[in-house]
Amino acid sequence: MNKNRLEAIGAYLPAAVMSTRELLDRLEKAPEFDLVKITGTTERRVADDTAQSPENSLTMAVSAARDCLGRSRYAPDEIDAVISCSISRMTDGGRLQFEPSFAHRIAKEIGADRAVHFDVSNACAGMMTGVLLLDRMIRAGTVRNGLVLSGEHISPIAFTAAREMEDSRDPQFASMSVGDSAVALVMDRATDDRDVIHDIELMTCSEYSHLCLGMPSDGTGGMAMYTNNKEMHAEDRLSLWPAFHGDRLAEQGRRFADEGYDFIIHHQVGTRFVDFMNAAGERGFAAPMPQSLSVVDRLANTATTSHYLVLHQALAEDRIPKGSKVLMVPAASGVVTGFLSATVSSLEV
């Protein structure tokens, strides 16, 4: 079969936990608001880039890659492609890196010397985009396998927001909901139907590309993110996924209700957002949603790694029986939506 599989998964989480209370204590201008109620997030992990072994986007990605390769059948020098998908690309003491590519540095660090390597950047759909490209490259015979990974040291935008926000309606509000992490995946050709990526399709509705912008702050410095939450999460944006997903299935005479999805993983924007997405899915497909998996309460919104971090944590907690069919739905600035479905049996953490 000309399909691929998720062959191995690994992750890295910084040890330091910051409670939502501690984050709110950092608010310098805005009156206090109930962030737990709005996002459902009680704590997040925060990388320490001043430690003796500094945690940043690069070092965390390398740690996740090593964790992943430790469970893979491939040695680093057998990896054909390395695709790094971080938004934050923070390294070397607060530098936002543009070149060389993160993928190059990671490949060198882990000893994937033969690998084709490049960075992908596509907001929170970055890892999903890396998986899509690698899926097509393996199917086309360009490479036999590959590593898709992302390290996100993104908590600095929360601290910029805490310094600069005027109130809870501030464009930087969404920045308060992020946390740090790294996830890595190895993919290769499927050998049976127990482990297989069935579909991965993505689309960008760029009419709305201006609704969420990440860039350096021109106020107090550091990285910042500015989001028009009202427009970003308007009914029409939420309806994009079921419309696109339903159309793509219908082109092949398939229906959502017949796909047998056991679990659904949405982007981890917050508990309310996940509920809204599931409601939009139920309306759009006129079908009940699969069981929803989430980590946003303890690990917050980890940007590009969100869906795969949920998968990793659910595997670690034995919440996904072998043979389960998992549906992932990205929702990213751009606006990017789409769907990935995969059956997982051999994937372990």
Binding site: S88, L96, S121, N122, A123, S209, C212, M215, A332, S333
Partner: peptide, 11 residues
């Protein structure tokens, strides 16, 4: 402006 999100491609 050193923008990192969304993709510059989307813009």
């Amino acid at each position: 402006s050193n923008i990192v999100e969304p993709s510059v491609a989307a813009l």
